[in-house]
Amino acid sequence: MTDRIAARFAALRAEDRAGLVSYLVAGDPDQAGSQRLLDGKPAAGVDLIELGMPFSDPMADGPAIEASAQYALGAGATLAKTLDQVAAFRRHDNETPVVLMGYFNPIYSYGTQSFIERAAAVGVDGAIIVDLPPEEDEEFRRPAQQAGLHLIRLVTPTTIGERLTTVLDGASGFVYYVAVTGTTGTKSGEAGVVQNAVERLRQATDLPIAVGFGIRTPQQAAAVAKFADAAVVGTALVETVARHRDTPDRMVEALHADIAALAAGVRNARQGG
């Protein structure tokens, strides 16, 4: 089985650039609209896709992502439909890694083993489960890794000392560095502080490091792309979707324009210094 995540980060290294990771909530504005947004992402410049699994009580997310999840659920989103979106995406793209991000309850309710089997079958590469810290993730991580799914671990500014060893033990795919102590989309980390943290993290792991939380603009993405292996943008894109819910065509255009600008920032970050 090919490891799309490893292959993608290897290709990025060969190009000496960071990748752009984009997050949207599956099912916002509806299944068809969400599928269009997803399908167009690689062409617009996304290197790795994070697809949010909507949950009614997203306790680590800020208001924009929570509202998007509520909207998606109201429009009939389910975990099964999220998996169907990945299956549809894979019919025309077998290279761009797709990582599902969300909370454990919908997965547990679906059946952890059934979810893992279905996710692997439709071409999901990994999962980020926000409320499943290392102490609780074995029931997901072991069967997932057997099925070739990475469970992406989160490292935060409070993950220091022995705690970092705990979090990195068993990590695979890449490491997601949460740049701020806060929820998504509410504040931004100071670039120098984040850089120091990422450099410390590199001493402890050989896995690629993606940085997220608080990255909204091409400039912020470029600043992170200088030292990280990938920059994750979520809330800013989720807000673009929310702004254009009444005009689906305009939504696709606007989202892809945002992504193109972010991608340009990321791609040019390491040139000239």
Binding site: M59, A60, F104, V130, D131, L132, P133, E135, E136, R153, L154, V155, T156, P157, T158, T159, I160, R163, V167, V178, T181, G182
Partner: peptide
């Protein structure tokens, strides 16, 4: 010692909170 009552309980929180919970 991990906070479980049978299969129930535990510490299902975001990593940011884990050090604090501990």
């Amino acid at each position: 010692e991990r906070g479980h009552f049978g299969i129930y309980g535990g510490r299902y929180v975001a990593e940011t909170l884990m050090p604090l919970i501990l």
